[in-house]
Design a protein around this nucleic acid. Sequence first.
RNA 1: CGGGAUGUGGCGCAGUCCGGUAGCGCACUCCGUUAGGGACGGAGAGGUCGCAGGUUCAAAUCCUGUCAUCCCGACCA
Length: 506
Amino acid sequence: MQLIIFLIKQSNICTTMGKGITKRSEDYSAWYNELVKQADLAENSPVRGCMVIKPHGYAIWEKMQAVLDQKFKETGHYNAYFPIFIPKSYFSKEASHVEGFAKECAVVTHYRLKNNPQGEGVIVDPEAKLEEELIVRPTSETVIWDSYKNWIQSYRDLPILLNQWANVVRWEMRTRLFLRTAEFLWQEGHTAHATKQEAEEEAIQMMHVYADFVENYMAVPVLRGVKTESERFAGALETYCIEALMQDGKALQAGTSHFLGQNFAKAFDVKFADKNGKLEYVWGTSWGVSTRLMGALIMAHSDDNGLVLPPKLAPTQVVIIPIFRNADELEAIAEVANQLVADLRAQDITVTFDKRDTYKPGWKFAEYEQKGVPVRIAIGPRDLANNQVEVARRDTKEKQAMSLEGLAAAIKILLDDIQQNLLVKALAFRKENTSYVDSYNEFKQVLEEKGGFIYAHWDGSAETEELIKNETKATIRLIPLEEGEPGTCMVTGKPSKQRVVFAKAY
RNA sequence: CGGGAUGUGGCGCAGUCCGGUAGCGCACUCCGUUAGGGACGGAGAGGUCGCAGGUUCAAAUCCUGUCAUCCCGACCA
């Protein structure tokens, strides 16, 4: 009996392979690229390294934004907007900051075009050269701290808790849709505080806000920790981060939160008078997540049939597909379907009733599967006769007949179950792909054969970190927050306070 | 910026070696049959072969230049 079920499942898979995508096992990278396009999330733009985010992809991003925005507001932050252009001179004010971003900045040098006097087209008007070039923001610390200088005089002006939703540009050499694009969308929080402790607490808080979002909405488990000095954000004293594991065993940095110390306050001369009238530099943080989260979402759950979305972030949670031969049949089905739509909406479930007669049911099944709609309900004449519907869940691809009686409530429970199942599956995968090693040879072997997160002892030096990176391409993803057992470095044998997490990363 | 490759209807490709006036699959339009996992048949529409020169009676094809994109490295959310 089990064998028969297995065969049926196999044949189902085969029939959907007609316009399928490359399997993960064959070429993970190709699978990802094809999936992004097939699921209608995004495509390459005419400009190298930039992407067009298509409606379905953008709808998912909007869901993410909505949840995050609410969380930011709940933690006391306000949204604001600063300009996309930053005067070049601002970048020279914080030395390590410019070091970190100079190599990937887009620069505006002119403000006018004119018709080409030599012939076709337009040229940049050489007369219209800017006095000072403008940098297209790669991040906004500099322009924001320049404003903070004017906004902050007294301890009464603090804290300032701002966030902005924006696009930024980093001229990357190699790009991939969502994971690394020359222009990307993100949010960047920028806060200013009177004390070191408060700023540190803010940075840590936001790391936890991110982790909570990624785990409870994206259903992707993350490790929390701090970056090593060499992986730290340019201009930060401490970078808190969350790291997720993708299905190919590589790590993805899902969010970062930086404790900036007084670096930017000093660079932009932002001081405040404390209660004793003494002038002090302001303490700062910055934190961000980007459309890269889309990449994490895709790579964490999706399968060889296409996108798999957690219900909490799916723009459409349920699709209803009628199966009919003629207008009369459709009418009978629509009566039931419309009632079901109303019932589902009453439960705050987003639902689409796709009664188009321009596409066949099989085509629609494949289409919604590829786009990751969590639950599909099919209703045909046979179902109407039995007062039931066929319900299929995207995550496990299981199908079952369900009674129309109390269906909306049952679907609500099913959606919760899918959300939960995705996280459980991802947690199990991470557990399977997490290793503890004590020798460098073992480390190399595990990295080569299995990948994943590897906990190992490290002597704390940048030299050893660099050596491991050069020899194995693995980097220290983070130093866990919780105190660990001391040991000895797997490479040098020098003492180590605790294990750190290594992985190959995106 | 080093190494490799590719530019031909909307997409994916063949044709290039050996010059002879452009073809296949998908998608698209119309008609009919179909409809519980990406239907079938028939009839159509759509391309200055990346761009600029050159050779030739004749160039997608040969030569020169140029631009762009992709992949592998160094760099990065």
